[in-house]
Write a protein that binds this DNA or RNA. Structure first.
Lengths: 284, 284
DNA sequence: TTTTTTTGTAACGTTTACGCACCAGCGGGG
DNA sequence: CCCCGCTGGTGCGTAAACGTTACAAAAAAA
């Protein structure tokens, strides 16, 4: 019988392309990868990989194996989730993925309080924005602003995130209305037409929400921003009095496999309650 | 990232129950299994197995892992089949599962001829009767007498196997009709009522078809037997002149994953043709 | 062009995982 | 009853797998 880890080697080498990158992914050195690959190929009746353009490419046969290995990986990830949820006490590792902005403006104290209330839980906060974290086991709970979260995840929507248009007080003082420019996440910001400055151009494109808010707070231009970020700022003021726009929902999510875990439940409740308490601020 | 071979250890230990049996299954010693298990349990937040009644029993959590490992095994077996079918030349290992009786009476020469015609193919003939061989990769091609072969297998039915009722000439000479007894595969042989001796009892039960035929040929009683086995025998004669009964089909089968392999195709064709050539003898 | 980085390969020394032999404890069968 | 077979556990020597280091070739950068 063959070693099931062979499948992982095939999958990882296919994804990484080189021995060194594969070694990094598998936490071994590239020489080890080379040896394992040589042993694997010796067991196979047909080459699995060929070197082409300074990279390992899977042969047609290798691609079949990769496809099967991908299915295997899904099961391995499922096993990892089962493993995570199996620790039915309030102890052990637990990870929360939350956007930087939410962490900074809404949950800083509450996360600290949770960690203090559960000293046996090793809480890790990761600041990534990718929603795929959950499937790959990189996080147990994620908090995201999203219109329609993937349906295979479970959780609850706390409220809508309200956004308004802001500018720094000094920016408004030192510029004329015709000279003002927008800071936006993309070039084609269609929502600008519904603002007090519908014809002003986008002067600065910043994809990262955190950096964009910093630019706004530094008086670099007009910008749409989440109320919970901008309202506490003493020098930022809304451009008009229209009520905040509920742009997307704020979700606390986990994977179905993890839902039964007491740790996960406790964290979801704590975070959900903390956000619900600040509902008026989030909605604007 | 965890070693995917852990899943195999969990699955095998669950099936075997003891360290030694697991070691035999994995082709390692029981000490190695103990070490791997200790390392695995150390990585798990919750026990996977508990010792109970001198055997390793999976915990509830362990059973979840076993279920996932079973799904993994299916994929691993699929990969094995892909591997087998990938060798697209007429070379390498090839295994044929065929009942002893068919091997001896019908295919002995033809299998030898096939092996001689394809010197680069390492042909292995296994004499098991289990049909599950194909799924577990224990054989590439199976030849079986079966009424309805599993539908997930592919292949063709050569013809029906004809059976008649026979006895050794000397047995008939030295016994009176009332003293004759049947040799059967089971106690409740309902087909006896349609024979020239419908009221004679079953005197000997032999499950194994090969041994049963030997008993018949040794003059131990009356018995139903396949025509292709009994007709060539000089001293066996039918009990009546009724035509042979087509009892079940004779199938040459393989797994869909292997069908594309030239080796498998060649072997299936050779065996199918060889059996078709002897169709009149098989049907009786 | 030269230089730098990144690639895979080869040799060497160490660690780790392995098989082997042996042990005691428990059960079933004679 | 005793004995035999099977269980898992322990110590030891070996062999396989590993990381480190060094090296040559090819692509990328200067």
């Amino acid at each position: 019988m063959r070693d099931w880890d062979d499948h992982r080697l095939i999958l990882t080498l296919h994804r990484c392309g080189t021995l060194r990158a594969t070694g990094d992914a598998l936490d071994v050195t590239h020489t080890t990868v080379a040896r394992r690959l040589a042993a694997l190929e010796a067991r196979e009746p047909t080459p699995v990989f060929i070197r082409q353009d300074r990279a390992y490419r899977a042969t047609d046969y290798g691609l079949e194996r990769v496809a099967l290995a991908e299915r295997m990986e899904e099961i391995d990830l499922a096993a990892m989730r089962v493993q995570r949820s199996s620790n039915n006490g309030l102890a052990g590792p637990l990870s929360l993925s939350v956007p930087q902005a939410v962490f900074q403006f809404l949950l800083l104290k509450d996360i600290g309080a949770f960690a203090g209330a559960h000293p046996d839980i090793d809480l890790t906060v990761v600041g990534t924005d990718r929603l795929a974290d959950l499937d790959r086991g990189e996080a147990d709970v994620v908090i995201r602003g999203h219109a329609n979260p993937p349906e295979h995840l479970v959780g609850r929507e706390i409220c809508k995130v309200g956004v308004r248009n802001y500018a720094h007080r000094e920016y408004l003082d030192r510029t004329t209305p015709d000279a003002r420019k927008w800071i936006s996440a993309s070039d084609n910001a269609v929502w600008i037409k519904d603002t007090p400055y519908p014809h002003q151009p986008v002067g600065l494109v910043i994809h990262d929400i955190q950096s964009r808010f910093l630019a706004l707070a530094a008086g670099q231009g007009l910008s749409r921003a989440a109320c919970f970020m901008a309202d506490p700022h003493p020098d930022l003021e809304p451009l008009d009095d229209t009520p905040p726009t509920p742009l997307y929902g704020l979700w606390v999510l986990t994977h179905p496999d993890l839902r039964a875990s007491p740790k996960v439940k406790a964290l979801m409740k704590a975070m959900g309650d903390a956000l619900a308490r600040q509902r008026s601020m989030i909605e604007g």
